[in-house]
Amino acid sequence: MTDLESRALAKTWFYPFRLPSGRQTPTYDGGVLDAIHHTRTQMLDAELARTFDDRLDGLSALDLACHQGWFSAHLAQRGFSRVTGIDAREEHVADASLIRDALGLPHWQVRQADVHQLEPLQLGLHDLVLCFGLIYHLENPVGALRAARAHCRRLCLVETQVVPGMTGWVDYGSYRFVRPLKGSFGIIDETGETHGPEASTTGICLVPSTEALVWIMQRIGFSRVEVLPVPDDGYEQLVHRKRVMVAGWVED
């Protein structure tokens, strides 16, 4: 076992990384959350097969808010020629870098950056952009989705917690000017948890409904948007639509 593996095994992780020796990193609460990572990976793989026919060599991927690097590592191992992961937290960048080196994945780059501070095309165009577990921790989720679209060449996958939708009509200044609701947002308070590694960095969280997320992705420039199917034995929140994975395609 290498020194890198020893360092990885010495701490508790959010993800169950399989190391070259065959050992697995210990995870929070004895692995009770592992199922969500496996379900999201299964759904990701299904879409890679459908959109790219699993022909990943020569393609690049961008993982926004990559956390400790679970999905970045998976994409690098699946065959993407170039993977870039960014995260706002220094400790996440350090953890992802440790896993990258332990797994021997030099074509995976990890950088510290806040999605809201990215300039258009700052990180280049990528065939795949991931936005997993991010937008429901943000006070400006639309801005993050615009950043994802700006860096996307072909496919963007967004996975998020969602809130119940609201429909109906609103008098918009007067009963003579009525507008339909296209979706809704719920406000979640994480102001007391900003120190937590899985929480918001600002504490104010706007969580979209599924209808709102789909409508926004359509309006910011994705030519086709779909809510992806969930395996029957998948993680309960995804099965019961408390979370969703939505695909947006950029087509010529």
Results as ranks from 00 to 15, higher is better:
78 R>A: 09
73 A>R: 02
59 L>T: 00
172 Y>V: 08
227 V>K: 08
8 A>E: 02
52 F>E: 05
220 I>S: 02
229 P>F: 06
132 F>Q: 04
190 E>T: 01
17 F>T: 12
212 A>N: 04
13 W>A: 05
24 Q>D: 07
41 T>W: 12
175 Y>L: 14
238 L>C: 08
143 G>D: 01
24 Q>T: 13
190 E>S: 00
105 L>K: 06
247 A>P: 15
164 P>K: 14
188 I>P: 03
184 S>T: 13
41 T>F: 07
20 P>G: 14
203 G>V: 04
200 S>K: 03
197 P>I: 09
111 R>L: 13
241 R>D: 15
248 G>H: 02
248 G>N: 08
36 I>V: 15
221 G>S: 14
241 R>P: 06
21 S>D: 15
158 V>T: 07
83 V>T: 10
120 P>W: 03
223 S>A: 12
156 C>N: 09
19 L>N: 14
89 R>F: 00
122 Q>D: 13
161 Q>K: 15
232 D>R: 11
101 D>S: 15
248 G>W: 04
32 V>Q: 14
180 P>C: 04
23 R>D: 08
125 L>D: 11
123 L>F: 09
35 A>E: 13
136 Y>L: 09
71 F>E: 01
33 L>M: 14
238 L>E: 00
190 E>N: 02
133 G>R: 15
127 D>I: 01
20 P>T: 09
46 A>P: 15
167 T>R: 15
171 D>N: 15
24 Q>S: 06
33 L>T: 08
215 W>C: 07
158 V>M: 13
235 Y>S: 00
166 M>A: 12
24 Q>M: 04
248 G>F: 05
164 P>G: 12
236 E>A: 09
188 I>A: 10
53 D>G: 05
65 A>Y: 01
19 L>K: 09
10 A>E: 14
197 P>S: 06
45 D>C: 11
162 V>M: 11
95 D>A: 14
137 H>W: 08
245 M>G: 00
124 G>Y: 10
227 V>F: 10
87 D>R: 05
45 D>G: 06
40 R>F: 07
192 G>Q: 07
245 M>S: 04
33 L>C: 08
228 L>Q: 11
121 L>C: 09
210 T>Y: 06
114 D>F: 01
184 S>L: 08
241 R>C: 13
106 P>V: 05
39 T>H: 02
196 G>Q: 07
23 R>G: 08
101 D>G: 12
118 L>A: 01
85 G>A: 06
88 A>R: 05
42 Q>M: 11
103 L>H: 08
116 H>W: 03
241 R>E: 14
11 K>P: 03
251 E>R: 12
179 R>C: 10
44 L>P: 05
232 D>F: 06
100 R>I: 01
135 I>S: 08
17 F>D: 09
193 E>P: 10
172 Y>E: 08
115 V>C: 03
156 C>H: 06
57 D>W: 03
231 P>I: 12
111 R>T: 05
50 R>F: 10
9 L>M: 09
160 T>H: 13
175 Y>Q: 14
193 E>G: 12
75 L>T: 06
3 D>F: 10
209 S>K: 03
